[in-house]
Amino acid sequence: MRVFVAGGAGALGRRLVPQLVARGHQVTATTTSAAKLGLLERLGAEGVVMDGLDAMSVGEAVAQARPDAIVHEMTGLGSGKPNMRHPDRFFAPTNRLRIEGTDHLLAAAEATGVPHVVVQSFAQSYGPGAGLLTEEDPIDPGPVPVVRRLSAGVLHIQDVVPKAGGTVLRYGGFYGPGASDDVVDMVRKRKFPLVGEGTGWNSWIHLDDAASATVLAVEKQARGVFNIVDDEPAQVRDWLPYLAACAGAKRPMRVPRWLAKLLAGEFAVSLMTEGHGFSNARTKRELGWELRYPSWRQGFKEELI
């Protein structure tokens, strides 16, 4: 197949492109920087400079590539350091790419007759209830205003992509080189404390496993929503001390919710004390997906030692 990977030079794109190439696909991958074209070529793709926020740039790139499938992996997460106190600033570029970039790619696909579009989303939901979320459960940002603003992009994807007949991949929290470096650095410097009882749930996924699931979604022309997470959702109180141990760091400090809210804001408190885990049963069943790292325990240990 001819596969167009928007955001091919990002943390996931760098793992996805080689896997697609290894399976015999012809890949066109985009970057916003001409300096990264050489990287894309070394990964086996034809590199193209494209501005995902410019409809004309997207339309021209897609028309020239004539792909059988488009994969949207564009984010702005590599443009700065995470800032828990001002998360709106950090996530604003990614929200624009998830809203405007998604619309531009869907429009380009329709204009050029591309039959399949796969779009990156995020497995994080703060709505009421308990238990693992399946693909039938929508992303719910909950009542906290800042979290609702940060979720604007995934809410847009959740709405428009299925209506267009596309595929939404709700990835868990990425880890692996290039994806978790900032978190590990904060843990080693003891700048990532355990808030309250650490009761928030997270679902993790190694970059290589996220890429392999994406390849299967493209090859099988899967439609609808798929949770791309490992087998073991975990509460912060379990995974954070374990990550610290794997990274050779001291055990994270514990701070009460009220203090964390004053120092880091509502987003950090929600992240550490609320949220759901996600089920990967549908992805494994329908795509025949097998994980390299079924649990973050194995992945953290092998990646961080």
Rank of each mutant, 00 (worst) to 15 (best):
G127I: 02
D231E: 11
F122K: 12
L43N: 08
T94Y: 00
M74R: 08
S125V: 05
L240F: 07
G113V: 05
K189M: 08
D140K: 14
W239M: 02
D88I: 08
R297L: 13
E266N: 12
E100F: 09
G275E: 00
V255D: 10
V17A: 08
H72D: 01
L259F: 09
H276Y: 01
L40G: 08
S151P: 01
I228A: 00
R190L: 12
H116S: 06
P145K: 03
A123W: 02
V269C: 10
K284G: 10
Y242T: 13
L240V: 03
V49C: 13
T32V: 12
Y175H: 00
T199C: 11
M84F: 15
M56P: 03
L16C: 05
L16P: 07
G13L: 00
R188P: 03
K261T: 13
G224Y: 10
D230N: 05
G10N: 05
A63S: 15
Q64L: 14
N227R: 06
Q221D: 11
S121V: 10
S125A: 06
P177Y: 10
N227M: 05
R257I: 14
M74Y: 06
E73F: 13
R89C: 07
V160N: 06
A179C: 00
A69F: 02
D185F: 06
A217K: 01
R251S: 13
M50R: 09
H156R: 14
V114Q: 03
R66I: 09
D140Y: 13
Q158R: 03
F91K: 09
A45Q: 04
F174T: 05
V215Q: 00
T31A: 07
P193A: 09
K284A: 12
V225C: 04
K250Q: 13
V147K: 09
A34E: 11
E135W: 07
A63W: 08
F226L: 03
I305M: 14
R282Q: 12
G153E: 05
L20D: 02
F267V: 04
G59E: 08
F4H: 04
E41T: 14
R42F: 09
V154A: 03
